[in-house]
Nucleic acid binder design. Sequence first.
DNA 1: CTATCATACATAAGTCATCTAGGTATCGCA
DNA 2: TGCGATACCTAGATGACTTATGTATGATAG
Lengths: 110, 110
Amino acid sequence: MAGSDLYIGTLDVLILKAVSWGPMHGYGIGRWIRQTTDQVLTVQEGALYPALHRLQRRGWLEEEWGVTETGREAKYYRMTPAGRRQLRTEVERWRAYARAVTAALDAAPA
Amino acid sequence: MAGSDLYIGTLDVLILKAVSWGPMHGYGIGRWIRQTTDQVLTVQEGALYPALHRLQRRGWLEEEWGVTETGREAKYYRMTPAGRRQLRTEVERWRAYARAVTAALDAAPA
DNA sequence: CTATCATACATAAGTCATCTAGGTATCGCA
DNA sequence: TGCGATACCTAGATGACTTATGTATGATAG
């Protein structure tokens, strides 16, 4: 496997979900993923930052510099309308996929 | 995404599951995955056959030529003890992962 | 007061699973 | 006779990830 941690392709939908309630900066997105999954998913920074740039390049996120609650400079990512549509699509894809794989792994002999 | 169909890394556990009840040939494994997931997952042959060779190389499958029910030659894959251990590990990994991602996608604003 | 950890960003190089696109051969059926 | 299904295969391209490294600042422990 290329990734020993992530199933490749699942990071994007998590990022989109993270910013679905309002702008969030990259480091905070990584923290959100780690926390809401109880450390099951730990996103490496070398995966996170390229992913953010990728999503921005595709028009799903917009960036804007801001200041954190603790007074530090940080680059905030805001979801675009296209990003919201993409989130819906990818959430649906994930649900169908997870349902299918889980069912297959639960299956009894054919 | 490299794959527009599979989340990369989920194919191995499905193959291992397919052969967990007895030897099965490659083409049949592909059909089993497609059928038990109601066509949600369609494994390309260019992904399937290299994956079978990979799992064999890692000692999780053994190959053996045989004849199908319809009288055709086919290469059957049999699970090794190490393969069975790997199946258990990967099923657990999948379940924890799927639970975590699904929970994150269901999450309410922090 | 200084070292270390957490925050916050970034990129380069390497790995490797997958997709795309081709190929061979046999069998059943129209 | 031709086509779809079965059954196998590989080469080349893609691109998301891991590992490793770099910068800089703020907070905190000792």
